[in-house]
Simulated scan of single mutants.
Amino acid sequence: MLSELLQGTDAGGLLVIQDSVNYPGRHLLKSFINAALNREEVVHVIGFEISETELKDGLKRSLTERLHFHNAFTDPLGWTDHPAFTVHQFNLEDLTHVVKQTSHSKPATLVIDSLSLVLRHVSAPAVCRTLQQLKKGDAVRSIISLLHADIHQRGTVGSICHLATSIITVAPGLKGDEAVAKITKRLKSGKVMQDEEVFSIKDDFTVIVQGKPNHTGPRQDDPEELETDPTANLTFNLRLSDTEREAKEKLALPFVFSKEKKTALLHSGPGSGRILYEPDANDDYDEEDPDDDLDV
């Protein structure tokens, strides 16, 4: 599935690459940029965390002619008199102006490196609203963004991922040059596809998919996912021994009727009593209106 996403066949989507301090996702982000340039697409990069020189390092010079870098790295908060691009310009109007200022007829691919710095200074609802407007607009063909998931609250990450059509969560692999990609892709039909693949990135940012990860080895649990046993430090025992469990299973509960008792209650035998009522002359009873005596 990672190879299909790199081919960029789906237009009008939002792809989010989630990384953490354990494995950075910027090399995979540059692989997507390299793949888009090889398809002769125009790519606009809003660079908040790295410079233009660092972004273009390793990319072919012939391809970078269609790569437009918008410097939000030097002054992301607009402290100087003439900032190139700031986090406060992360809105539909300014982003559309930035993309359309170049003379290209086809919609471009917009790359945001990264959303994490924007989310530190702009509210999550405002960022989500801008991303949704860009998805529905005609200014960009697709949006690719890097998100450092471990520095945000889960609700913020969930809001961004809820808008995404594809999510790639990267983690380190068993070998030094390998990584694991957990992929979630939402189809237009509403179906959700998930996959997990081992990949490596070459020096020219070509992605090599090596297959499925091997889960037979010892699993490294995330410390946040480990749950403590609430019964570990109790002064009494909540668990039953085999003898106690056997005695419990043999115990007849008072509200559970045996088969013989059910039969005796449902089928009355000889000598059982019945209540018969015969109205007398003083009873004011009307068969056509049984509730006639009620004051309603």
Rank of each mutant, 00 (worst) to 15 (best):
G12K: 10
G12D: 11
G12A: 10
G13F: 02
G13D: 14
L14H: 06
L15M: 14
L15N: 00
Q18E: 15
Q18M: 09
D19H: 15
D19K: 07
S20A: 13
S20I: 08
S20P: 03
V21T: 13
V21L: 15
N22K: 14
Y23C: 14
Y23L: 15
P24E: 08
P24R: 13
P24F: 10
G25S: 02
G25F: 10
G25R: 09
H27F: 06
H27I: 00
L28H: 09
L28D: 06
L29D: 00
K30P: 01
K30Y: 01
S31Y: 08
F32N: 04
F32P: 00
I33R: 03
N34Y: 02
A35V: 05
A36G: 03
L37Q: 05
L37K: 04
L37F: 04
N38C: 08
N38V: 07
E40A: 08
E41C: 06
V42A: 09
V43P: 05
V43F: 05
H44G: 00
V45D: 02
I46H: 04
G47M: 03
G47A: 13
F48E: 05
F48V: 06
F48P: 03
E49K: 11
E49Q: 14
I50Q: 13
S51E: 07
S51Q: 07
S51I: 12
S51G: 15
E52Y: 09
E54K: 13
E54H: 08
K56E: 13
K56I: 14
D57R: 15
G58K: 11
L59K: 03
K60Q: 12
R61Y: 03
S62K: 14
S62F: 10
L63G: 02
L63I: 03
E65I: 02
L67D: 08
F69T: 01
F69N: 01
H70M: 12
N71P: 03
N71Q: 04
A72M: 05
A72V: 01
A72Y: 04
F73D: 05
F73S: 03
D75V: 14
P76L: 10
P76N: 10
L77N: 02
W79R: 14
T80H: 09
D81M: 12
D81A: 12
D81T: 13
